[in-house]
Design a protein around this nucleic acid. Sequence first.
DNA 1: GTGAAAGCGCTAACAT
DNA 2: ATGTTAGCGCTTTCAC
Lengths: 330, 330
Amino acid sequence: MATIKDVARLAEVSTATVSRVLNRNGYVHPETKVRVAKAIEQLNYRPNDVARSLFKGRSKMIALFVPDIMNPFFPELARAVEDMTRQHDYTFVLCNTDDDPDKEIAYVEALKQKSLDGIVIVSSTMSGDYIKNFEIPVIALDRILHPSLSSVTVNNRAGSRQAVDYLKEIGCERIAHIAGPEHASNAKQRLDGYLDAVKEEDWFKYSYVEYGEYHFEEAKEATKRLLEKHPEIDGLFVANDLMGVGALKAAQAMGIDVPGQLSIIAFDGITLGETTSPTLTTMAQPIYKIGARAADMLIRQIEQQERTKQTEEFTVELIERESTKRRDGS
Amino acid sequence: MATIKDVARLAEVSTATVSRVLNRNGYVHPETKVRVAKAIEQLNYRPNDVARSLFKGRSKMIALFVPDIMNPFFPELARAVEDMTRQHDYTFVLCNTDDDPDKEIAYVEALKQKSLDGIVIVSSTMSGDYIKNFEIPVIALDRILHPSLSSVTVNNRAGSRQAVDYLKEIGCERIAHIAGPEHASNAKQRLDGYLDAVKEEDWFKYSYVEYGEYHFEEAKEATKRLLEKHPEIDGLFVANDLMGVGALKAAQAMGIDVPGQLSIIAFDGITLGETTSPTLTTMAQPIYKIGARAADMLIRQIEQQERTKQTEEFTVELIERESTKRRDGS
DNA sequence: GTGAAAGCGCTAACAT
DNA sequence: ATGTTAGCGCTTTCAC
């Protein structure tokens, strides 16, 4: 690989001049500029980013921390963040944390050694105290980690309430909830939204809430428990789509017709919900937009040094599919 | 951030000695070693990887190139590669190429500037000629890109033949194939496997093969075309699971009972196939193992400078689920 | 067993 | 408008 010295020698200028041409700053005579450009061209020279990073203390790399890329919610998010990253000429590092704080910290330490410029993080577990000492910009995504942190989220609570109201409106009279993990802030908000909508109903009982883990299998079992305990349930709001598909499978395994006997609505709007039979009604997040916005916000913070806290909340949207059906008044 | 100089000063040694302690090479007196260790501890010193990279010309980063992480086959692969990457103290860069050669090349160039150490690549489009000039180790995954390249794959052809033989064995008498994109080597191999199994049958016609694009929607349409043209089809081998789910949806939309009237088997073994109704019978690849093996092979090549070509082929395994059913002889 | 010094490739003062 | 030089933080010869 040719270096800046080779270019300088060939163009018969100093390395400083080459650097000026490269970075378009400082004055350089049009003619020498051409000579330098030609030398660059001729040697197929590309500046060494590592040397640049060393000097600048910045790497033009950002990382996305997700619990597990195999969870189908995250690939779309990752795609968005990666697209935005590339558009700004950054390099995209992906880290699976398994929601393990030790892993998260190990990653942060390792990446700091590489002069990583910033992190977009989806995490339920990382301690706010620790994050305050990151020394690099961080945007919390999907879940709020610490009140002082910039974040991009959706209206989980209002959206959940809307989901339950929709079930009511199509005639469901006993509506239960499969909740996400208690430590995740968005699961808590979705549960609150459900409670907002049902707690005044005379039929409501706290045993109408079962807990899953944002996983397919756990949700299946939670649903089974719920429906065995409460066969009168005719509407189910599930904390996310992955769990929603689990709920669907559980109901079908029990011989319950969806949506004939039971309407199911979930949350997220991932593609998975379009592949089941019946397809899954959901409160869709603008997943791509959220990811892109977070990456954009992060890069802005990196480049403008504006470390002011920013928060942005997107709105979820009801997508009616086949897992819900209007009940005729009886 | 403390530097090696700070440590040297505090331990009252030279930076060279600190470096020796850090890298466990060269002789250093046990006592000074302790002094240095204490200074490191006290300053919470971590070596700057960028400076190291600059000196060594290597970055301890590897990249995975995939067409699109949103395609559900790739997250599991990515997870495996990332796990292995981390275990070896490398950093994991993810690149979505959209099967666009220009993007692939742009990525390679950008990453070379960062002294990237190696690439695991899933690609159908990148030209072999270009890859020969990479100058860094590359492992082709899932699809063979160039005969001279190291690769990790599965027995696509034999596995496909096995899939079709299985359909025959459960009593299917007219078996069609929804093929993947013609430019992808693995799609070609799967088609060949299908042909191996059926070309001697007197009922076989070339119009029993329809082409999709490894995508859900295209596969749906291809299946619709196929089944309208050939209502006699009672068995369908689909080139991958994502398309298989599309085929399933298409059949259901046409009022065809799966597996009652039509048995469907696909290829890959992704989780998606467990969430549909009926669940999807498939030839499962050991996806995680493949990814882990490729990453391992790559890192070995990087660290041992052994640029010898290696190839490894894993074996797919039949997983019977609900989309196939034995037909009673009539 | 340890230190001095050169150099990885680049940028930015500073000087001219 | 251009060149000289110091230095980003580290590793590694080469001396002693």
